Simulated assay, not measured.
Amino acid sequence: MEDFLPLGTKPRRDAAPTEVCASQRQSYDVTAVPGADGVVFVSFSPRPDACQGLDGPPLADVPIVYAVDTDRWLILSVQK
């Protein structure tokens, strides 16, 4: 989560309400799935009820998936 949405992230001053909502960690569901060889796939996707009815661009409904090496705690790849 720290790479995806670092603590203290703030939207720009003129951000639309959906952008303000998107900058909050509670707007996302996080799913972790174990893979082979000590790799975990971590998916961040907008919660279905998050940011609904707000002005501004909608949140992308495609999840962002990280592949993380749990032996060295390194991000191997990010699929956006």
Rank of each mutant, 00 (worst) to 15 (best):
M1P: 06
P57K: 15
A15L: 02
A36L: 09
D71M: 07
P63Q: 01
A15Y: 05
F41A: 03
R72I: 04
S23I: 05
T70W: 00
S45L: 12
P63D: 00
P34W: 03
L74T: 07
P57V: 08
R13T: 05
P63K: 02
Q24V: 04
P6D: 03
R13N: 10
C51V: 03
M1F: 05
D69Y: 04
K10Q: 14
P11H: 01
L76H: 07
R72D: 13
L59I: 07
A67W: 01
A15M: 00
P57I: 09
V68M: 13
A16P: 02
F41T: 03
P6S: 11
R72E: 12
V42K: 02
P46H: 06
S43R: 00
K80N: 15
G8K: 05
Y66H: 06
P17I: 08
R12L: 12
P17F: 08
A32K: 02
W73D: 11
P46A: 13
C21D: 00
R12V: 13
L76R: 15
G8I: 09
S23H: 01
G35I: 15
S27D: 03
C21P: 04
R25D: 13
L7T: 10
F44W: 10
R12M: 12
K10W: 08
Q24L: 08
P17W: 11
K10C: 06
Y28V: 11
G8V: 09
A36P: 07
V42I: 13
I64G: 00
C21I: 06
I75K: 03
P11A: 06
V65Y: 04
T70R: 07
S23C: 00
P11Q: 04
W73P: 00
V39E: 03
A60W: 11
Q79S: 15
C21K: 01
A67V: 12
S23K: 02
D37I: 07
K80L: 14
Y66M: 09
F4T: 09
F4G: 05
S77Y: 04
Q24E: 09
S43M: 02
D55T: 02
V65R: 11
V40I: 12
R12I: 10
G56N: 06
Q52V: 14
T70F: 03
V40A: 07
Q26V: 08
A67R: 10
L74N: 08
D49W: 10
D55H: 10
E19K: 06
P34H: 05
V42C: 03
Q26C: 08
D61A: 13
V42L: 09
Q26F: 11
Y28W: 15
G8S: 12
L5S: 10
P11R: 00
K10G: 05
M1C: 09
V62K: 08
D14I: 00
S45P: 03
L76I: 15
G56H: 06
Y28I: 07
V78I: 07
C51R: 01
V62M: 01
E2M: 13
D71W: 10
Y28D: 07
T70I: 04
F41R: 01
P58I: 13
D29S: 12
I64K: 09
S45K: 10
P6N: 06
P48S: 15
P58F: 14
T70P: 00
V78C: 06
A22R: 01
P34E: 12
I64M: 10
P34M: 06
R13H: 04
Y66P: 03
P17H: 10
L74A: 11
L59S: 05
D14G: 02
Y28H: 13
L54M: 04
L7E: 12
F44V: 09
